[in-house]
Amino acid sequence: MLNIAQMPLAKKITFSVMLCFISFSCCADVSVIVHPSSKIESLTTKQIKKLFLGRLRMLPNSNREAVVVDQGSDSLPHKRMYSELVRMTPTNLKRYRAAYLFSGKGRLPITVAGDDQVKDFVAGSLSAIGYIDAASVDDRVKSVYLLTID
């Protein structure tokens, strides 16, 4: 077992730096974002899961059908969002989306590339909901949920 208290100082520093490095490189927090003028202040995990699976078609506290903005399936925020929050494997997600689309239940998310494009889209639409690396959040968008590392 690792006992940090018993480590020499130099090792402690190296270890902490390593931890920071790990958290920044592979496990950055993800923020779910909406338009800054949206009435939504926060959302529950379940609401987000249902919104991203198209099972809640309107944004809560609004009169608007949700326009869900996805990132590419290879991107880090996408992987974290679907594996840890929605809890669906990439293959199951693809099958689910195909069944959803062709059963007339609704539309699929709009896919854009990278945090900046998600912010551009969300900043331009009161109906939009997307997700980005928490470090990329700025005043053009409002964070309504933070997915943190366990």
Partner: peptide, 20 residues
Amino acid sequence: RMRTPLYLFSDSLEVGYAYP
């Protein structure tokens, strides 16, 4: 016109990609 919900996969009967 809609699909009669007789089965679990009624809504995507023809969409082979949606089932195993």
